[in-house]
Amino acid sequence: MKIETTEKKPWRQIEFRIERFKPGRIDPPRFQSFRVAVDDQMSVLDGLEQIRLRQDAGLMYRHSCHHSACGTCACRINGVERLACTTRILSLNTETVVLEPLRGFPRLGDLVVEMTAFYRDIDPAWSLLTPAEPIHGAADPAEDPSLRLEACIECGCCVSSCPAAHRHAEFMGPAALAALHRQMAKVDAARQHDLLAAAASPRGERLCERALNCSRVCPTDVYPARHIADLRRRAKASGTPPSLK
């Protein structure tokens, strides 16, 4: 990392316009502005933390890991689905940061949405682990291959950005289809067939409109649209009849 100077860059005042919502109290939702002193390191999540700790203890947002591993802090930042923790405020190049909750999920309060629907088509038992990409020049022992956690952190950005998910409530959606496709690589042929049948169902890949927003907004480069395209190709090739689900 290049260290240009030990002196701190001057702090800038940035406006955070946050869509507030408290059922029955701030209802319908409305925007509220806060001013935050910002340096060139601070993330949008750091800004939210400052507002909660210094200006409004009742500000609701989700956060945990602060480094794009947990997926809880996804929201719409200046209209685009992103993680608050890895979005540097000054990289947005705006005087105003507009924050809204993810679309298409029931709102609980302020930026917090209810994630139950997100998990509707993701089996809790689907594996979280996958072989890690080899590191160039490494002798990875075959009997003890390195594993890593799946890239998808289930943040909900893709679902919020997906026009088809908003048009068709029954659509499995990009996150579930990507997870299903990843799971197919880890199971036997019979289970693969069942998974492909689910993906080819009337609630599955056929509802995808190829807007590709999911791949654009995904903060961990899962590229859900590629998984959906592969499911579509495999469904066509196998002639899997649509299930009646």
Partner: peptide, 24 residues
């Protein structure tokens, strides 16, 4: 972890657990 690597850590003692800034 996943497709990231985490570099750690520094440590100091504070009175306030609500530490929100990471000194450059």
């Amino acid at each position: 972890q996943r497709r990231l690597s985490v570099l750690g850590t520094t440590a100091w003692l504070a009175d306030d657990p609500d530490q929100v800034t990471a000194p450059a």
